[in-house]
Design a protein around this nucleic acid. Sequence first.
DNA 1: CATCCGGGTTGATCCAAATCAAGCATAGCA
DNA 2: TGCTATGCTTGATTTGGATCAACCCGGATG
Lengths: 249, 249
Amino acid sequence: MAQAIHLHQVSPLKASCQQCSLSNLCLPLAVEENDLERLEDIVQQGKIYNRGEHIFDQSTPMRSCFAVKSGSVKTSIITEGGDEQVTGFFMPGELVGLDSMSSDTYACTAKALERTSVCEFPIEKLEELTGKLPELQHHMYHLLSQEIQNSHQLAMLLSKNTAEERIAALLLSLSSRFRRRRMSPTNFSLPMARNDIANFLGLAVETVSRVFTRFQNQGIIRARGREVELLDVEALQLVTRDFARQGCQ
Amino acid sequence: MAQAIHLHQVSPLKASCQQCSLSNLCLPLAVEENDLERLEDIVQQGKIYNRGEHIFDQSTPMRSCFAVKSGSVKTSIITEGGDEQVTGFFMPGELVGLDSMSSDTYACTAKALERTSVCEFPIEKLEELTGKLPELQHHMYHLLSQEIQNSHQLAMLLSKNTAEERIAALLLSLSSRFRRRRMSPTNFSLPMARNDIANFLGLAVETVSRVFTRFQNQGIIRARGREVELLDVEALQLVTRDFARQGCQ
DNA sequence: CATCCGGGTTGATCCAAATCAAGCATAGCA
DNA sequence: TGCTATGCTTGATTTGGATCAACCCGGATG
């Protein structure tokens, strides 16, 4: 292990949540400054995964959840039939594996969409720590419930909205997540393939492609491969809202 | 300690999880016998709601989550446009409100589908207690993650499955939940209207109706209004294909 | 008792998106 | 340099379920 080489040095494996630029998005935000090292004690920081590598696999023993440090992660369920259902995309500062929290085995597979580094939180130690730090416990509950809400939101998108609305919603979601990280909310590169977008949104790849070009022709976005520029955010928001309004007619 | 007043009486408000027939499905299952009264201390038991009454409302301050004691509950999100999206049905022994856990306001509205009694767990006290009882905390995490998984399953159903598969899956889910309660898994009455089923599964009412009669003509079920009899469970499982999961515990 | 009304069923028509089918661009590789 | 694989786009055709429309039934109401 290349990492072992570094061990006798200035302990690069010892996490330093304080210095992490994501500390205001990630778990540290819920921890008092003087308790922070207790969190740092249980974290294993800096694991790197290459594009396509699995961080954990569905049905294997659940040991940890993971915070994305850089890169991005896709989670998906594989059915017995071999069908894949993408259940989420995770960006820096976000926690992966919450859907398997306190389960015996992972409920989904997590795969790096690009070169990705993560911080690992062993579940036993995390549970133990949340028992001692009410703020952290509160935050964990909040994250978990948030995840449920997200999923309900997705279900709503899938059951009630058109292809255009779904894609507009995804673009806006990504946009706001980039903004949170102080990156451009209008000019970013999609971490995932069209295929993954289609799967996630319950569409055929062809439909995703068509909607992208339609948006482009309308001057709402500009897209070249995975590079995307949102030219008219208002229009995108309008697309997602129009449908909600139709209920009134 | 106000509850102590009632203790020498017949204690109508004092919860008695021990005697509750659902204790092996509900929160008490995670609590040691000698800690049980700490759980009982924070519960407000026996609230009754009539058909159609709201247990809590979306966007109002989140105070408690609720265990269904008898009857059944429907949760739904209302969009700005007035659209309703049913997010779940809850039966005795199940916890409602987890999607709003540790949020400021409720993320959905919970409505009694019939005359329903619930036990109320004030969220602050519950959080405090889970900090002291690791088993209970573990169970809460488990319930929350389970809820995420259920929602992912629903998303998959909505994005990949046909009308017949969705309805078969719902019937099987209800069936297994009745079985857990030691009730007939093949002969029960639906707590919800066709309308709610349609909304929940992302279908039109007409489609739901058609599928029911189709199943009936195929001899898979017998349905008269809300009364349902599953005549051929194997056939139903076959319809759902790789969607055989969804069992709990 | 007639009426009304919400919930449920059934039939006819239409449409958004899936599917089928090519073709194109880029990257990795021998 | 060409070959293959992979991802993306575009066009033609098909289809599952939505929508529109009518009707039925049973229980509540005046």
